[in-house]
Nucleic acid binder design. Structure first.
Lengths: 146, 146
DNA sequence: TATTGTTATACTCTATAACTATA
DNA sequence: TATAGTTATAGAGTATAACAATA
């Protein structure tokens, strides 16, 4: 009988499936907070003000899109465009007080995707955490190949 | 010092980050095959013919969207609409020969997301596979909460 | 000249509602 | 009456290209 996880192909597919399994509850969460997934991802990143150009890099989309995404978040009073003292071309995207509040609530809810983690024991969760940490690294996921 | 993975919250966030890390190379792959992510997900599932209604469930989107997605895949000659012998209301979505070929190529490339897996040892990959398998289950990811 | 953010444009994804043909 | 797929419509994400302000 074939051993599970014997090759990287199998693992990559599994990772893909696990990602799929995470997406569903994430999107449900977005709906609950009345945000689109990109809007949520953008807001979640705004711990500190970020140039719009950098936001495009984070979201991995063309900079022109950030305009619209920021517009819609701004309409809801969740973010604000601030000038950059160092470079007047740059606009910093910053979460408002309401934005920070929502961001914290969303992040807390994100931690509650327990249906996913309930299938594992405490020990297994610990091992999985360690492996995922090693895998996902410092957030510098595989880029530069597009 | 705080132990890694001591609570489910931390793990859920890690899972989310890992999913993010998988998305980038997946989308790059879609670009390479000149498909949108949904189109790719749809084609990847078409191992066997599938009612359009079921495809909507797989993609977790409204059934009305499947029309357009199928249209675009059909235009490229990758899928075909077939009648269902049992129920004449139903149309089965089936991959054409070209569709099956592309599906296999895509699936193979999907297994080559090695940058992600290269950070782990063979033993670690094996453990991770087992845990992910337990986590993602039989593909029946947490639904019913939207 | 190069870069930042915006605008205009076009395509795709997404949901809702109304429609048809079948059941 | 209910269900499968379509169509019409509208909002949002996405990329490309051209633009104004700034570097």
């Amino acid at each position: 009988m074939r051993e599970i996880g014997e090759d990287v192909h199998e693992l990559a597919r599994l990772l893909f499936r696990a990602a799929e399994a995470v997406r569903a509850p994430f999107e449900a969460l977005c709906e609950r907070f009345e945000m689109t997934p990109v809007q949520a991802r953008a807001l979640l990143v705004l711990d500190e003000p970020l140039p719009m150009r950098d936001m495009a890099a984070v979201l991995r989309c063309d900079p022109s899109n950030v305009t619209g995404i920021a517009d819609r978040l701004e309409q809801r009073g969740l973010v604000r465009r601030e000038p950059d003292a160092a470079d007047r071309r740059v606009k910093l995207l910053a979460a408002t007080a309401a934005g920070h509040k929502l961001r914290r609530e969303f992040d807390a809810a994100l931690g509650d995707l327990s249906p996913l983690t309930a299938r594992l024991s405490a020990r297994e969760r610990q091992v999985l955490s360690r492996l995922l940490l090693k895998l996902a690294g410092n957030g510098d996921c595989a880029e530069g190949d597009r």
